[in-house]
Design a protein around this nucleic acid. Structure first.
Length: 237
DNA sequence: AAGCCATGCAACCGCGGCATA
DNA sequence: GTATGCCGCGGTTGCATGGCT
């Protein structure tokens, strides 16, 4: 099948966007969204651009929730782990980093993080997200489930990484193991044979930091998150 | 000061998937 | 069942900038 071009490439403007074009696009999207159709948006918005170019400009740069600026070490860790787990599926990786776009993550990986890792500058053992469980352990103010829920939300990315690792290693979303037994307590953990440094981290997080009732909350949230990601991967495969 | 090179990042390109006629 | 159109994604390109010689 021969694909017809989305627009006449010879008649639309290419290259960097001007401030005026940005303003036109922003004004239009603020009022109408993409109008249900990116291809027809340029005409409606008064832009001499390809619809795909408008979509890219908006999603990667103009969208109000975009986070500009350098990546944190926590974000490095998430990217590193997800890349190892699922490869260059930038959209999924970016979805774990609020405010980051797939393009951003891809550029960051290709230009900086890859080099940072190979040079040894990026140290997974000393990464702050890994050490956060120790922080929790020393924080006596964390004393109720609400606080723990907030803490867990902050560590959401880690849970998702673990889920993705499991999906990858089992090669089937239907074979995701029950990573943490529903009846487990801090010293009767059932890890279904999964081992390794990252699992030690998970054990630290659950067993060292919290009492058993809190662990139950974490376990439940993890199960939910795993199901969510499993279905996401299932849908995308 | 000028030229060269490396780096970072915005933008483009083409393909696959999906919805719909 | 097939053709068509749109969206989203990943790979790649090209330009701007800064550092080095």
């Amino acid at each position: 099948m021969v694909r017809s071009p989305c627009c006449d490439k010879t008649k639309v403007k290419k290259g960097p966007w001007s401030a005026q074009e940005d303003a036109l696009l922003l004004n239009f999207t603020a009022t109408f969204g993409n109008g249900g159709n990116w291809i027809s948006l340029p005409k409606k918005a008064g832009l001499n651009r390809c619809g795909k170019s408008c979509r890219l400009r908006y999603l990667n740069y103009l969208r109000p929730d975009i986070k500009h600026g350098g990546f944190t070490e926590e974000e490095d860790y998430v990217i590193y782990k997800l890349f190892n787990a699922i490869g260059s599926r930038w959209a999924i990786i970016a979805s774990n980093l609020p405010g980051r776009t797939d393009n951003d993550v891809k550029n960051y990986w290709n230009t900086k993080l890859k080099r940072k890792i190979s040079s040894g500058e990026f140290n997974i053992i000393n990464n702050p997200i890994r050490n956060c469980c120790k922080k929790h352990n020393n924080n006596s103010q964390i004393s109720n489930n609400e606080n723990i829920t907030n803490t867990i939300e902050k560590d959401r990315s880690y849970y998702e990484i673990e889920s993705l690792n499991m999906v990858e290693s089992k090669e089937s979303t239907e074979e995701i193991p029950s990573y943490y037994s529903e009846n487990s307590s801090s010293n009767s953990t059932d890890f279904n044979g999964i081992s390794g440094e990252e699992d030690e981290f998970w054990m630290d997080l659950l067993a060292d930091s919290f009492d058993s009732s809190v662990v139950a909350v974490a376990s439940h949230q993890l199960q939910e998150k795993m199901s969510e990601i499993a279905s996401l991967l299932h849908d995308s495969s």
